[in-house]
């Protein structure tokens, strides 16, 4: 399956900012969030973009 230009997942430490849609990963600390994002980036073959300090998205380009 080939997905282009799609938000593959959302990683956050602030639960209130997100809802629905892509798979969501809620982390406790910034370090954990960086770690999860780095792993997901490699697994999903996408790029982690930071929308704010509390919210990353993985996007396939």
């Amino acid at each position: 399956m080939n997905i282009e230009k799609a938000v593959l997942s959302v990683i956050t430490i602030n639960k209130e900012k997100i809802s629905g849609g892509a798979p969501i990963f809620i982390c406790k600390t910034k370090e954990e969030m960086d770690n999860v994002a780095a792993n997901l980036e490699a697994i999903l073959d996408g790029i982690s973009h930071a929308l704010s300090d509390e919210l990353y998205i993985i996007v396939k380009h």
């Binding site: 960086d34 790029i47 982690s48 930071a50």
Partner: peptide, 9 residues
């Protein structure tokens, strides 16, 4: 150029 989220990257 682009948005890079991870500090390591």
């Amino acid at each position: 150029i682009m948005n890079i989220g991870l500090p390591d990257r």
